[in-house]
């Protein structure tokens, strides 16, 4: 699985080919994202004296953590030709579930983590099963769970937040750091690496590409499309659960009304990162870059003192322009 060199060499000796490493780094659009990211860094560095600093970059990393982590799962969902609109609601409900478990079951970070991740995974499973077994389009299924999960999250405490008091929980998911790198950024890196391994180096990853690239051909090749698709939803739900742990550890509480509308940032990151909404194409590193580009854009505009209303307009315009420019 670490044998990256041999195909790379094979491709080098055969003109016209693209190696596995190239695919891993660039997806289907050579270096475009890197160039876009670099241009953005240069522009903001010139325009704002505060932009170019390690503190600011750690800041960007922390701010984009939630979107980046969930977007890794969304990459699998979108490559397999589906969509998941429920991730923000799943995050909210998972956070409630984790904090309530620690409040009423046992005040242990393990209990909280299991409850949070498990809730996310269950909602993902529900999305996957409804989509593949009842053959309802995932857009509609997850539109339903978007509403349902948020409603449940608001119902369990009658819209009140739940305070968390577990210090280990704070350290592991929110405030700890290793070698000066904050825990949320470490989680982002870990999830991204795991996502890369799973998508680009595992049998499952190949099947995700095939299921989205041409479901009929995949079926005729013996791929269990329903299982493959369902697993992608479970993965995304679980990562939304992980994001809820990080968010609630940072704020020492879980709130049922958090991150409304975040699914749009997640989907925008994935598409900006090179996934095709028609399935079969995309790469994890691209998704991370997409998320960082959106996060950097937010950060840079704030530093430039652009009003928050205008920020939204600029962000929307840049996303549409970037996708239009880089598509195909």
């Amino acid at each position: 699985m670490t044998d990256i060199q041999s195909p790379a060499k094979a491709a080098a000796s055969q003109p016209g080919g693209r190696s596995a490493l190239q695919h891993l780094l660039q997806g289907d659009r050579p270096y475009m994202l890197y160039v876009a990211f670099a241009i953005m860094l240069i522009v903001f560095s010139l325009a704002s004296p505060w932009f170019l600093s390690i503190d600011n970059f750690l800041n960007i990393g922390r701010q984009t953590t939630l979107v980046s982590i969930i977007a890794v799962g969304m990459t699998f969902v979108i490559i397999s030709r589906q969509i998941d609109l429920s991730v923000a609601s799943t995050l909210a409900l998972s956070g409630m579930s984790a904090s309530l478990a620690m409040a009423f079951v046992a005040n242990s970070w393990v209990v909280g983590a299991v409850a949070g991740l498990g809730t996310g995974a269950l909602i993902g499973l529900l999305n996957g099963v409804l989509t593949t077994r009842l053959e309802i389009p995932s857009f509609l299924v997850t539109l339903g769970t978007l509403s349902g999960a948020r409603g449940l999250a608001l119902m369990v405490t009658n819209t009140k937040p739940v305070i968390i008091t577990n210090e280990y929980y704070f350290a592991i998911f929110g405030e700890g750091s290793v070698l000066g790198i904050p825990a949320p950024i470490l989680w982002t890196l870990g999830v991204t690496i795991a996502g890369i391994l799973l998508l680009h180096y595992s049998v499952y990853g190949r099947r995700v590409y095939a299921a989205g690239g041409n479901p009929t051909a995949a079926l005729y090749s013996g791929v269990h499309i329903k299982q493959v698709t369902t697993l992608a939803f479970v993965l995304t739900g679980t990562l939304a659960g992980l994001a809820s742990l990080i968010l609630s550890a940072r704020s020492h509480a879980a709130r049922p009304d958090v991150v409304q509308g975040m699914e749009l940032d997640v989907i925008a990151s994935v598409i900006l990162g090179g996934c095709s909404l028609f399935g079969g194409r995309g790469f994890v590193l691209g998704t991370l870059l997409g998320s960082l580009i959106i996060g950097t854009l937010n950060n840079g505009l704030v530093l430039l003192g652009v009003s928050s209303s205008l920020q939204l307009v600029i962000k929307g315009a840049i996303i549409v322009a970037a996708v239009a420019f880089t598509r195909r």
């Binding site: 041999s6 596995a20 099947r207 095939a210």
Partner: peptide, 18 residues
């Protein structure tokens, strides 16, 4: 070419690229 026979080219679910 490898899609229908992926298990032949894998160990514990990881693809053997060579």
């Amino acid at each position: 070419l490898t899609l229908p026979r992926l298990p032949y080219f894998s160990r514990l679910g990881w693809l053997q690229r060579r």
